[in-house]
Design a protein around this nucleic acid. Structure first.
Length: 256
DNA sequence: CTCAGAATAT
DNA sequence: AATATTCTGA
């Protein structure tokens, strides 16, 4: 009997730090769910909460339990930056910020407050797959050099690290977001067959996507079906097909 | 006939 | 790659 069961060309196998403990924080329950799902898929050990205070309590109560914190920026009780700061003060954990806001000021704020990464929503699972590198880096640096000059922060911003860890990097920040809502009723040419009616493609801006997410959120994952989502979103010009298409794509990105 | 979901096309 | 359109079955 051949004892060959080693045939794996599976992707996430080789040296993924399985079981790393991640604390996910987001007030939007659907986002949280998605985040959780993605993290689990990537074989992280996930604890999640929908508010920063609980997050803090969890962290304080289990100083060694977590390896990484990933938190939304905008939250009701305490915003992500405060959380970030407190965590930085009280413990040595890598924190990743999540936001729909691609404003460079915000990104900068995150970084200067000590975030080790700043991801834009909607987050793709590929970005999640890669975050363990921050933990590794932190640990490596930490054990090697315990240098703590009693200096206030110097706001030294390093764009992106130069290639260091295995897989290629994720994308850059500072793109996307076009102004939507293009009303078009301009008359102009009624030539026979040329262009009479434009067919505006629906552009799923972050905002629109967010509405979509909220709708799905309220309906619940199982009951979220195009028509219901559609009239829950209540966006003009949007068709059931549009939503259906987006829904399909959306689930694909979740599983990718 | 209407819709969801998958497949396929642009 | 993102969104639209077509197809199938309920």
């Amino acid at each position: 009997m051949t004892v060959v069961k080693d045939h794996r060309r599976d992707d996430l196998r080789d040296e993924f730090p399985v079981g790393m403990h991640v604390l996910a924080v987001d007030d939007d329950s659907t986002c949280l769910m998605i985040l959780e799902t993605m993290l689990r898929r990537c074989q992280y050990n996930v604890t999640s909460t929908n508010n920063a205070k609980t997050a803090l309590n969890l962290l304080r109560g289990n100083k060694n339990k977590f390896d990484l914190v990933i938190s939304d920026v905008q939250m009701p009780d305490m915003d992500g930056f405060q959380l970030l700061e407190l965590v930085g003060l009280e413990m040595d954990l890598p924190v990743i910020m999540l936001s729909v806001n691609d404003d460079p000021k915000m990104v900068m704020k995150g970084i200067t407050h000590g975030a080790c990464d700043y991801l834009l929503k909607p987050v793709r699972i590929k970005e999640i797959q890669n975050i363990w590198q921050h933990v590794v880096r932190r640990k490596t640096v930490d054990s090697k050099e315990r240098n703590k000059t009693s200096n206030q922060d110097k706001a030294k911003v390093d764009s992106n690290e130069s290639g260091s860890v295995a897989t290629g990097n994720s994308d850059q920040i500072g793109k996307s977001s076009r102004k939507r809502k293009d009303e078009d009723d301009d008359e102009e040419n009624d030539n026979e067959h040329s262009s009479s009616q434009k067919k505006p493609r629906v552009v799923w801006t972050v905002e629109l996507h967010h509405k979509f997410i909220s709708a799905v959120n309220q309906l619940g994952y199982e009951k979220a079906v195009p028509k219901k989502i559609l009239d829950m979103m209540n966006v003009e010009k949007l068709t059931r097909e549009n939503v259906a298409s987006h829904l399909q794509a959306f689930f694909l990105t979740l599983l990718l």
